[in-house]
């Protein structure tokens, strides 16, 4: 409706128009409230969506990339940072069998299921900052490994290969199936609770 048309509208008609609009506004507000107060919708809005707004309130002002990555990637970020700090682009990082980590340090990774040890996840995070080695690589290539993760007392450490520890570590890793992968914490738990 244009302003020139407005001037020619009968005041009664205009009043009726706005009365109808306000009744509709009240109706739509009421409908919206009814939908939002349905138990499941209310629960979703007051828990999940509210939690997102709390995140925004606490994190929103931090736009530093490293902070955002740390917050998002959570447990994986500590391990990724450790590898990036300690390894050079010409080093070879041997990805330990996931079964080995679950069996020996389940507590450390139970919330992630060690999904960060999936080769493509490590490649996504690390790129070419280190060469990645898979346990299925030929022995000649495995001999090049310079670093790996080693579990001790339910904690994970970055281990540098030396002549004296290489046979022990390789021997231990080869006890586990390199093709096994638990994609979810539930799958990791099933493996952890299975007989060794």
């Amino acid at each position: 409706m244009t302003s020139s048309n407005n001037t020619s509208v009968d005041p009664k008609e205009r009043r009726r128009f706005w009365t109808v609009q306000i009744i509709y506004l009240a109706a739509s507000s009421l409908i919206l409230l009814v939908i939002l107060y349905l138990p499941r919708n209310q629960n979703w809005l007051t828990t999940t969506v509210e939690r997102f707004y709390t995140q925004h309130y606490t994190l929103g002002k931090q736009i530093d990339i490293a902070t955002r990555r740390r917050e998002g990637y959570e447990p994986a970020y500590a391990y990724i940072e450790l590898i990036q700090q300690r390894c050079q682009p010409n080093d070879y990082f041997l990805i330990p069998p996931q079964q080995y980590l679950i069996r020996n340090a389940y507590q450390a990774g139970k919330s992630t299921g060690y999904a960060w040890t999936y080769p493509s996840v490590l490649y996504y995070y690390l790129g070419k900052s280190v060469h990645l080695l898979d346990m299925t690589a030929p022995d000649s290539l495995l001999q090049r490994a310079t670093h790996t993760f080693w579990a001790l007392d339910n904690k994970i450490y970055l281990l540098t290969f030396k002549d004296h520890n290489r046979p022990l570590v390789m021997g231990e890793f080869k006890k586990y199936d390199p093709h096994f992968f638990a994609y979810t914490p539930q799958q990791a738990k099933v493996y952890y609770q299975s007989k060794p």
Partner: peptide, 29 residues
């Protein structure tokens, strides 16, 4: 006028969705 409450609610959802999209790195496996 009746559309405004709905638009307000959708904006409430979209704002936080947009913030989470932009702020967080990619997370799904």
């Amino acid at each position: 006028l009746c559309e405004l409450p709905f638009l307000g609610f959708w904006a409430y959802l979209l704002f936080i969705s947009a913030w989470k999209t932009a702020w967080y790195p990619n997370l799904p496996f």
